[in-house]
Amino acid sequence: MIECVIFGGLLLDKYLELEELPERGQDGFINNEFECVGGCSVNMAATFNNLGGQAHIVSYIGKDKIGQSIIKYMNEHQLSTRYVMQKEGTTGYCIVLLEADGERTFLTKTGMELDFSKEILSDGLKDIKYAAVTGYFLLNDEVEEIMQVLEDFHKRGGFILFDPSPLVGSINQDILMRMVYISNVVTPNSSEFEEIKEWVDDEKIVILKRGGHGGTVYEKNCTFDYMPIKVNVIDTTGAGDSFAAGVLFGLAEGRSLQDSVRLGSQTSAITVGINGPHGFWNIEDILKK
């Protein structure tokens, strides 16, 4: 079984479904509300597992009610808790304002997910060769310790995919430079790419995402475009996470870069067609597309 480790925090997503966001200072109505376990890490992990792999999330969570519900959810869905640790404190949550056309706006109250210590990696990532890192996790107060772990992983020959995230501009510049340097693949959108482009060299695989317009892949001596798979969009939350996990799994499985990007497009298409940031399906769903 292909394994990977995902550096990204766990929290609770609190969805508010709206027809559309009201203008600032104006009123609106909530059509529906629901909650689910969220965070880029669990979205990636669910997709990686759906494809037949085993993803291990690295995250602290609190011993509060939300933290307990996250552990229960992960156990119910066979999501690994090898590198998930509870301790005293509050688990974070994210309010997701979901509009009828699938667009979403996030407001996050951070908690234990933005904490880290090497003790959480009980076996030192033994026998794991692939990693995904979310930009959000590099806003951690213990980011230097995180980077030491990742740089050691890189020196041992580990393969790293880095997904910068919309808050990439808030990451310390030295940390960001080091992160890009050790990454094999980076998956920014157009605005995120502007924050990292000065450190990208020809040795990096860059997958420049353009949402509903597909994107462009840059590899040494090779550039190609990819198109999205057209589906009925219900909720775009987690689409980028699912794409990244699909690409990482494909490359870990030994597929070509083109086939891995195609797989990422397929997993992303499944994700935007369901309500919530991730779902549970199997490889047969991919083969039908």
Rank of each mutant, 00 (worst) to 15 (best):
Y83D: 08
K65P: 04
Y83P: 08
Y93M: 10
Y93W: 10
N75F: 09
M85R: 15
L79C: 12
T47F: 01
Y83F: 14
E88R: 11
Q68A: 11
C94K: 11
G67E: 08
N75V: 07
H77G: 10
Q54I: 06
E88P: 13
H56Q: 03
G89H: 11
Q86T: 12
R82W: 14
M85W: 15
K63Y: 12
I71D: 13
S80R: 13
G62A: 13
T90D: 14
H56N: 05
N75W: 10
L51R: 01
Y60C: 01
A55F: 14
Q78W: 10
Y60S: 01
I57K: 01
I61Y: 04
Y60E: 00
K72V: 09
K65Y: 06
E88W: 10
T47C: 03
K65G: 00
F48V: 03
G62R: 10
S69L: 06
T47D: 00
V58E: 07
H56G: 01
V84I: 14
T90L: 15
G52P: 15
Y60M: 02
N75P: 11
S69G: 05
T91R: 00
S69Q: 08
Q86A: 12
S80K: 14
T47V: 00
K87S: 13
I70E: 02
D64R: 04
K72G: 10
Y73R: 04
L51F: 06
N49C: 10
Y83N: 08
T90M: 15
T81G: 02
S59L: 00
Q54G: 06
G89F: 15
I70M: 03
D64S: 05
I66V: 10
T47A: 01
S59M: 06
N49V: 09
I71S: 14
V58F: 07
S59F: 03
H77R: 11
T81V: 02
I57P: 06
Y93I: 05
G67Q: 07
K65H: 07
V84W: 00
T91F: 02
G62K: 10
K63R: 08
T47K: 00
M74A: 10
N49Q: 12
H77W: 09
E76Y: 07
Q68H: 09
Y93R: 11
Q78I: 07
K87R: 15
Q78A: 09
N49A: 07
G89T: 11
I71R: 13
T90S: 15
I70N: 07
N50Y: 02
Q78K: 15
I66M: 08
G53E: 14
L79M: 10
Q54M: 01
I71V: 14
L79T: 05
M85P: 13
Q86I: 04
I57C: 02
A55K: 09
F48H: 11
K72H: 05
N75S: 12
K63M: 13
I57H: 07
I71A: 11
Y93E: 12
S59N: 05
I61C: 03
Q86S: 13
T81N: 01
Q68Y: 05
Q54W: 02
